[in-house]
Design a binder for these strands. Structure first.
Lengths: 304, 304
DNA sequence: CGAAAATAGTTGCTTTAAGCAACTAAGATG
DNA sequence: CATCTTAGTTGCTTAAAGCAACTATTTTCG
C-alpha cells in the first residue's frame, strides 16, 4: 500500500470515527452540561488533587475561561475547591457528592451510547473491535516523549519523600515514610524505588519489592504520577524500567493491586498485558489484583 | 473480557483518539478557514451537486448559519452556487478553480499532519495501523440501516432515467439514456440495473454488464448515489446485491473504473476488497482500474 | 385545479464558547 | 528584601452557532 493511500485511509477513518462519535457537537448528550464542562467533570473525577492549572494543560483552554467554568460548577455545588496547604495559591479540585452523582449519570450515558454502537455485533466481533482499537492505540502511543527520564533511586532525598507523601494523601492513607524506611528498599538489591523526572522535575515514583511468600514474583507498589504530568507516558516509563529490572533479576511475574474505581489506571495495566489474578495480599483497600508474566515470551504474546 | 471491561476499553480509546485528533485539529485553525469552513469545502469538493440542505444533513448545523458561511465562501470566490434546473429553490454547490486550489492546500496540510503522526512507525507498523483501522471501520459500518432497499430493476421508469441523468450531469458526460438503451441491459439475464431506495425514495443506481472480451468477468458501471443519501451505506448495499448476483451467475471477478480524484469512492472500493488492476478499457476519463475476486475464498482472504 | 403544507434558503437578533489582557495574591529566586 | 514567576480572577471582546420570522418555490391532496 502506497504512502498516499495509507494517509488517505487514515484521514478517511478519522472522518468516519469523528462522525460516529458525534464529536464536534457542542452540547453533551445530556443538555445540562456543555461538552467542555463534562470533560472537566471527568478529569476532576479521574484525577485526585487536580488544580485549575492542571486542567488548563489537559484541556488546552484559556485560564480565564477555566476559572469561570469552575466557578459555575462550584456554584452549582458539583465541584469543591479546597485551598492547598502546600501552596495557598492553588485550589485542589474535587467533586461533591452531588457532582459524583452527576458524573455517574454521565458515565452511564456514555456507556449506553457505546452499547448502542456495539449493538448488532457478535461476541467475537466485539473482541475483534477491542483488539483492533488496542493495536491502534499501542502503535500511536509508541512514540514516547523523550523528556521523561526514569531512574532507580540510589539515595533518598526530601523531594522523593514529599512525592510519596502526596501519594499517601491522594489515596487517603495515614502513613509517613521516613528516610530509613525508604532507604531499606532502596538498598535491597532485589527491590527498589524508581522515580520519573519530566524536564528535570520529579513527577512520579513506584516501588518494586519482592514477595517472600511467592517465589519468582515481585510486586509493584505506590505507583504515582503527579496530576500535572499525566498522559505523558510517565507511568509507562516507570513500568518499563521496573519490568526490565525484574526480568534482569530473574523474576517471572509482577503483581500489583488497585481499586476498582481507578479505571484509568487499570486500563493502562491491562494494555500492558496485566491480567486479573487471585487476591494475593490482605490489603483491605485493594479490590483488583493483577499480574503480568514477564518471561521472554510475553512480548510475542502481545503481538498476537 | 467482560462487557463492562470492553465498554471501558472503548471509551478509553475514544478519549485517547479524540485527544489525538484534537492536536491535529488545533493547527487547522492556523490559517484562513475555521474548522467548519474547511469541512464545508471538503464536502463540496467530495460531493458533486451538493446543496445547502445536504450540507445541513452532513454537518448537522443550523440552516441560517450554513447559508451565511456559504455566502461568505461565495463572496471569497471559493464556492459557486448555481440555481438547480430541476428545482429552482436549490443551489448546486461547487468549488471555483480558486476553491479547488485552496482545497488542495488543505488536503496537503492535513496529509502532512498525518505523516507526522506516522513518524516513528516502521513500514510494517503502518500497515498494521491501517489494517486495524480498517477492521474497526468495517465492524462499525456493518450495521446497515434497514431502510435502504436494493432491487434489480425489471422495468424502466421515468424516475430511473432522471437519476441516470443526474449521474451523467455529475460526471459531466453528455449522454442521454433512453428507455430502450436501458431496457436492453435490464432484459439481459447476465446483466442488469440495480436501484436503491431509502424510505421508498430512489436514491442510487448501478449497472452491471458483462465484458465480452474477458470471460468470467463482469463490470460495475454508473454507480451513483444522490448526495443527500450518502454515508448511509447505499453504495455498499448496491455492491452487495451486484456481487451476490454476479456470483450466482458464475462470474469470478468484478471490474470497475474510476477517476483518481474520487478518493472517497476509491476508498470504499478498497475497503470492500477491490484491488488495482491493469487498464481494461479505453475510457479516456478513467484513471483508476479496480478488480475484485468474488470466488468463495475472497471473504476468507478479507478476514486475514 | 387551487389552497394548504412542505421545502430551500435568507436575514435580523441572540446565545454560547472561548480568548485576551490587565489585575491580585502568593511563592520562588537570587 | 526586591524581583520574577505562578495560580487564579475579572472585565471586555470575538467567533461560532442557534432561533425565529420571512420569501420564494414545490408538492400534496381534497
Amino acid at each position: 500500500m502506497s504512502d498516499a493511500t495509507q494517509i488517505f485511509a487514515i484521514r478517511d477513518f478519522n472522518r468516519f470515527y469523528t462522525a460516529r462519535l458525534g464529536l464536534l457537537r457542542q452540547r453533551h448528550l445530556d443538555g445540562e452540561f456543555s461538552l467542555t464542562e463534562a470533560r472537566m467533570l471527568y478529569e476532576i473525577w479521574a484525577n485526585p488533587r487536580l488544580t485549575a492549572s492542571n486542567l488548563r494543560g489537559i484541556l488546552g483552554l484559556d485560564r480565564g475561561y477555566i476559572s469561570r467554568l469552575l466557578a459555575s460548577l462550584t456554584k452549582r455545588k458539583l465541584v469543591r475547591q479546597a485551598v492547598s496547604k502546600a501552596d495557598s495559591r492553588e485550589r485542589l479540585l474535587s467533586l461533591t457528592p452531588a457532582g459524583e452523582k452527576k458524573m455517574a449519570a454521565l458515565n452511564r450515558q456514555s456507556e449506553k451510547q457505546i452499547e448502542e454502537m456495539l449493538q448488532g455485533l457478535s461476541r467475537e466481533e466485539r473482541e475483534r473491535l477491542v483488539t483492533s482499537l488496542g493495536v491502534v492505540r499501542s502503535l500511536l502511543t509508541a512514540q514516547k516523549s523523550s523528556e521523561v527520564q526514569v531512574e532507580r533511586l540510589s539515595e533518598v532525598t526530601e523531594e522523593v519523600l514529599d512525592l510519596l507523601q502526596e501519594y499517601y494523601e491522594a489515596v487517603g492513607v495515614m502513613v509517613r515514610d521516613t528516610p530509613e524506611s525508604v532507604g531499606e528498599i532502596v538498598n535491597d538489591p532485589d527491590a527498589g524505588v524508581w522515580i520519573a523526572t519530566l524536564n528535570g522535575k520529579i513527577v512520579g515514583c513506584a516501588y518494586l519489592h519482592s514477595l517472600p511468600s511467592m517465589p519468582g514474583a515481585t510486586e509493584c507498589k505506590r505507583l504515582y504520577v503527579k496530576p500535572s504530568a499525566r498522559g505523558k507516558g510517565v507511568a509507562h516509563a516507570l513500568l518499563d524500567a521496573q519490568e526490565a529490572f525484574a526480568r534482569s533479576r530473574g523474576f517471572k511475574r509482577i503483581y500489583l493491586d488497585s481499586k476498582d474505581d481507578l479505571r484509568v489506571a487499570i486500563g493502562l495495566y491491562q494494555r500492558r498485558g496485566f491480567v486479573a489474578c487471585e487476591r494475593y495480599n490482605d490489603n483491605p483497600q485493594a479490590t483488583v489484583f493483577l499480574m503480568k508474566e514477564i518471561a521472554e515470551t510475553s512480548t510475542k504474546a502481545l503481538r498476537r
